[in-house]
């Protein structure tokens, strides 16, 4: 969509007021600033609901979440080569609350000690942290693997997986 070159002042003021009111102007918390509740994260990282369709995209894209590398999801029959390292995600919304799912996606080890699952919203505490997949060193905190919005999108998809 073409952005208008100028915007009527009143409209701009209305948008500003609306976003400020909904808390959208605030940056999402850094991974180290998350508030944990026994492995769960109660607050949305973005302050607004995620988009389940975008979440499905993140979950099946190699360069993003690639959740299907390890987990099978029957609701995605068109996605080939789903791995079997972790548990199936069918019905996962019946087993965990949204807050628990958010915490598991962000850093599963806070729920399942020793889990093989990487933390997708985690920036530090690593052994030999690297710069993405370059093999080169990088300073912590690293950018998390997924953005706050992508985490919320994934959570929004996961809560649809009821038995």
């Amino acid at each position: 969509m073409q952005r208008p070159a100028t915007m009527p002042l009143t409209l701009a003021a209305m948008i500003l007021a609306a976003t400020a009111g909904a808390g959208l102007a605030a940056d999402p918390p850094a991974p180290s600033d998350l508030t944990w509740n026994e492995g769960a994260i109660d607050q949305s990282l973005t302050g607004q609901p995620g988009d389940p369709a975008a979440g499905a995209e993140v979950m099946t894209t190699n360069a993003l979440g690639n959740c299907v590398a390890c987990h099978q999801i029957s609701a995605m029959p068109d996605v080939p080569f789903q791995g079997d390292i972790g548990p199936m995600l069918d019905g996962v919304a019946g087993r965990y609350t949204e807050a628990q799912l958010r915490g598991i996606v962000a850093d599963a080890k806070k729920t399942f000690e020793g889990s093989m699952m990487p933390g997708f919203y985690k920036g530090e505490g690593f052994i030999r942290p690297g710069d993405g997949y370059t093999g080169k060193a990088a300073e912590e905190p690293l950018p998390p693997i997924l953005t706050a919005q992508q985490v919320e999108d994934v959570v929004a998809y996961l809560v649809t997986l009821k038995e």
């Binding site: 690639n66 590398a69 791995g83 080890k109 990487p118 690593f126 942290p129 690297g130």
Partner: peptide, 24 residues
Amino acid sequence: TRFGQLEMSCANCHEDNYGNMIRA
């Protein structure tokens, strides 16, 4: 030792999960 941002050791894949599929 679980290296990197993915925190994975050799053992995670090749001892605990040989025979399983990681994607294709």
